[in-house]
Structure formats: structure tokens, C-alpha cells
């Protein structure tokens, strides 16, 4: 009996240890999350920030949605809060730089954006920063030649920046089409880069307008800058709606004429024959009645 008690006690202790161990392991470790900040300025208007949150799952980066990230300008103090954003299913969140940080923005020629995630039950707290020197871009055209200029604020004036890589293209539905065979251009000492427009056959809107774009992408110093200009260099595009046409996929009142005639002709030919054959029965009947 004693031996049995010992065995039972031993088994129970073992089970408790195992279950205790499992229970302990169930308070899973929080995963780390990577946060990246991107700076955008389009057409020299109000800049905005885009935050990307990712985590590594089975060796692959997966977007992290639904986490709240606090965005700050230069430091965490009163008057420096840009906003609090929540990432979407793609792990992205965006915020414009609000007027509330105007004073802080004007106080320096370079700025550091801070992204702070306080952590939650799944992910550990983390921070990220990005330092940017505000810059602006200009675009001008002359006889199918495009010039893009990059300027940086120094002291109180905008000065040209040399050696910045940029792209010059035409806005299309699926992306930007380079204006010629050169993929990227670099600004010279005047801060300018020029490209010849070689997309003469490109269709524009009804007036032949197309949108030119010059852009700096993922620059370490300036972030993402872009500027657009509309020029009448494209072909005039006349939109022809096929929505209400007679097609095989149209509604019943929009059946193709050829189909209506063809099917109608066949149906009529067969059914007129059949009706005549039914009439024939009555003719046979009449002969039978007369023969009585």
C-alpha cells in the first residue's frame, strides 16, 4: 500500500511539474516588431510621414496591423507630437505634419522624426527615428525638355543641391513611365538635371495633357520628394464607351443584331415548319372526315 502511495504521489508530482512547465511556457514571449519611418513631400506642400511595422514569422517579414504608434518631432515634449496612428492590415499608417508643430519645424534646418510603440500583449515596445533636411523640388519645361531642380534650405534661403539622384517620368495608371531611355539623372552644381521628352506617341487626356513628374526616392538626406507639371504633349484621347453597346455580354435588350437575326431566323424556320406539320394533322383529319 505504501509502495502504491509512493507511486501515486510520484506520478502526481511529475504531472504537476509537467503541467506547471507547460503553463509557464504558455505565457509566450512577446515578438519584436520593426518600425520604419518614411518622409514624403509632394509638390512642395505639407509633408507627411508613413510608418511601416513588420515582424519576423518563420524567417519571413510579415506586416503588423492594429498597433498604435506615436509620432514626434525631434523630441518627446509638449508641442512636438505629430500624432498617434494605428497601422492597417498592410502594417502601414500615415500622418501629415500638423500645424501644431510649426514652431518646432521652423526652429531647425534638420529634423529627426521619432516613432514610439509602447508595446502590447503580443509585441515588445520599440522606437525608430529618421533624420531629414527639408528640401523642395522645382520642375520646368522648354520645347520638350524637362528640367528638375533640387533646393535645400540653408540659413534663410533655398540653395541648389549637387549630386542628388532623381527620376523624371510621366504619370500613368500603373506607375511612372520614364521620359526617355535614361532611368535616373543626377543634379549638377546648379541643382538641376535635364531630360529630353521622347514619348511623343503617348496618349493624354481629351486635351492631350499629360502629367510630368520629377522625384527623389529614399534619399538619405531628403527622404522622398516629388513635383508634378501638366503639359499638353500627349495625344488627344477620345474615350469611347463600350458600356451600352450590343455585345454577347450585354443585357437582353443589347443583344447583337446578327445574333437576334440568326437565332430568330433559325427559330422561325423550325417552328413555322412544325406549325405547318401540326396543321398537316388537321388536313389529314379533314380528309378522313370527308372519306366517311
Amino acid at each position: 500500500m505504501k509502495q502504491l502511495n509512493k507511486t501515486i504521489t510520484g506520478l502526481v508530482s511529475f504531472v504537476l511539474i509537467i503541467s506547471g512547465y507547460n503553463g509557464f511556457s504558455q505565457s509566450a514571449q512577446k515578438a519584436s516588431v520593426n518600425i520604419a519611418i518614411n518622409y514624403f513631400n509632394a509638390n512642395n506642400s505639407i509633408p507627411h510621414l508613413v510608418v511601416n511595422a513588420k515582424t519576423r514569422v518563420n524567417g519571413r517579414f510579415q506586416p503588423v496591423g492594429g498597433i498604435a504608434v506615436k509620432l514626434l518631432l525631434d523630441k518627446d515634449s509638449a508641442g512636438t507630437t505629430i500624432g498617434k496612428v494605428v497601422t492597417n492590415e498592410k502594417g502601414e499608417a500615415a500622418s501629415f505634419i500638423p500645424p501644431s508643430v510649426k514652431q518646432e519645424w521652423a526652429s531647425s534646418k534638420t529634423h529627426t522624426f521619432l516613432a514610439v510603440f509602447d508595446g502590447n500583449n503580443k509585441f515588445e515596445a520599440t522606437k525608430a527615428d529618421l533624420t531629414i533636411a527639408p528640401a523642395r523640388m522645382l520642375i520646368s519645361t522648354n520645347d520638350k525638355s524637362i528640367t528638375a531642380t533640387v533646393l535645400q534650405l540653408k540659413d534663410t534661403s533655398w540653395v541648389p543641391v549637387k549630386g542628388v539622384d532623381l527620376k523624371i517620368g510621366v504619370r500613368r495608371l500603373g506607375g511612372d513611365l520614364p521620359v526617355n531611355e535614361t532611368p535616373t539623372f543626377t543634379t549638377d552644381s546648379t541643382g538641376q538635371a535635364s531630360a529630353d521628352f521622347k514619348r511623343d506617341s503617348i496618349p493624354g487626356d481629351s486635351k492631350g495633357n499629360i502629367v510630368l513628374v520629377a522625384k527623389v526616392e529614399d534619399n538619405d538626406q531628403f527622404g522622398n520628394l516629388s513635383v508634378e507639371k501638366t503639359v499638353p504633349w500627349g495625344g488627344k484621347f477620345k474615350y469611347v464607351s463600350t458600356f451600352d453597346r450590343r455585345t454577347l455580354f450585354g443585357t437582353r435588350d443589347k443583344a447583337p443584331i446578327w445574333l437576334i437575326f440568326m437565332s430568330g431566323g433559325v427559330i422561325l424556320a423550325v417552328w413555322i415548319t412544325l406549325i405547318l406539320l401540326v396543321r398537316n394533322i388537321f388536313a389529314i383529319k379533314k380528309i378522313g372526315r370527308e372519306a366517311r
Binding site: 398537316n280 380528309i287 378522313g288 372519306a291 366517311r292
Partner: peptide, 27 residues
Amino acid sequence: AFWKGDHKQYLLSKKAINALCIAIIPV
């Protein structure tokens, strides 16, 4: 009951059967 086996009836019936045989194949 109207079928008397009259020659005219027979001809009409034969014509109809031939027409049906021709019509039924494409259908």
C-alpha cells in the same frame, strides 16, 4: 379515329415524316 388509310392521307403523312426526319437531325 380520322385515319382511314386514304392515299391522300398516306401521302401527307409520308411528307410530314420526311420533313420531321430532316428537321430533327440539325435540331
